[in-house]
Design a protein around this nucleic acid. Sequence first.
DNA 1: TACGTGACCACGT
DNA 2: CACGTGGCCACGT
Length: 113
Amino acid sequence: MEDSKSNFFGDVYEVVKLIPRGRVTSYGAIANYLGVKGSARMVGWAMNQAHGNHSVPAHRVVNRAGLLTGKHFFSGGPEAMQQLLEAEGIMVKDDKIIDFKSIFWDPAKELEL
DNA sequence: TACGTGACCACGT
DNA sequence: CACGTGGCCACGT
């Protein structure tokens, strides 16, 4: 039973799984919701490990600028992430999400209750 | 055991 | 307004 840090990764996956279809969020937003906003990089690492977990829609997680920074880490190729986003109705241009702020889903606000 | 790197973010110049 | 640097924690070599 891994307690502590392993729990952090699990929480990240839980939040990412809760992202509604057609919406996206940022690493910092997840970190902020988990109370580790100072460690937004760890969320990225969690996604890297989530790579083996197909239950986690990591393609709905991008950086603060709405840029598909982790596309290159996806199975099948960097275009896989953009394809998955477009499949959910999210428009992507030049590896960047269109109207990112409008489809941005912040767990700290949407799940605050 | 120690150093470097990394799917980031915020601040300062 | 754009670029550079610092800080954070964990993992790989």
